[in-house]
Design a binder for these strands. Sequence first.
DNA 1: AAGAAAATCGTCCTAAAGTATGAGGGGAAG
DNA 2: CTTCCCCTCATACTTTAGGACGATTTTCTT
Lengths: 158, 158
Amino acid sequence: MGIKKLLTKNKVLLAYGISLALLLFLLRWLELRFIIFDHAFEIYIGAIAIIFTALGIWLALKLTKPKIERVVVEKEIYIEQAKAFVFNEAEMTRLGISKRELEVLQRMAEGLSNAEIAARLFVSLNTIKTHASNLFVKLDASRRTQAIEKAKTLSLIP
Amino acid sequence: MGIKKLLTKNKVLLAYGISLALLLFLLRWLELRFIIFDHAFEIYIGAIAIIFTALGIWLALKLTKPKIERVVVEKEIYIEQAKAFVFNEAEMTRLGISKRELEVLQRMAEGLSNAEIAARLFVSLNTIKTHASNLFVKLDASRRTQAIEKAKTLSLIP
DNA sequence: AAGAAAATCGTCCTAAAGTATGAGGGGAAG
DNA sequence: CTTCCCCTCATACTTTAGGACGATTTTCTT
């Protein structure tokens, strides 16, 4: 960041420079009025003062860490959770539902028929029927759709 | 904003100008009063330089505005499972599902049998069967459980 | 090793679900 | 007014689901 830029940028510094110039003129006026000495001396001092003031400012700006005022803005982000399904194992234990029965239940909820479930689990249709019947008793349901509904509210299936 | 106003407003600048003037007078006074050494001029210059450098540094530190850094902190908020169900009417229109059919679909998802649905909607069992059949065609399902699954993923039912 | 629980499979039967087809009434749009 | 869609209902039939037994085999626990 150059001095020129600084001066044009900062009104305060500009005013400062102008005031210094005015001061020098004042001195000259005083000089003319009262004591007459070497004019060059005051001008030189003034120039030195300006230069080193600028140098001081430059030094300060360059060498010091920039003042940073940290403003923390809290931005609320609403995250729609992908419905993190947490399996309710306690409920499964309470109802006495076995692992195999749960598997059948899951497939039933997927919309598969008993025959399809039997094929996927490599067992006979009768076995699936038995599991289904046991499930209905344990879930207190009389239809598979009802069983699915109950199982979902109990977080046994997503 | 005029210079005059700036000067009267900013005490720092005023003090600075005055100090410069005083310094010059002091130097002149010293020059008049005492005998100047050979290197008096260099000493003056050095003193002026040091003083005004310090002044410049002080000025810079005092007058620079702190940079405001806006830190955006993202606060994650997880939506509770009160997750409002938004009915996908577009999908219903696309599939050509009628109001009555949707009603039947909803009851089916609740686990009701066709007979129960018929009783609740005050129509005959055959009517429900017809609606169900039409639904299966429109939803490309062959079972009610499958229809329910599809309808749920399409946000036709919660 | 014995017992309990779980998983498997079967049969018989009934109930419910699903398919196919036809048909009548009513409302909305052309 | 006529056409189209929706809702309604019916009949006849097929398929699937579900209930009620019993039975054998694994698997785990004690």
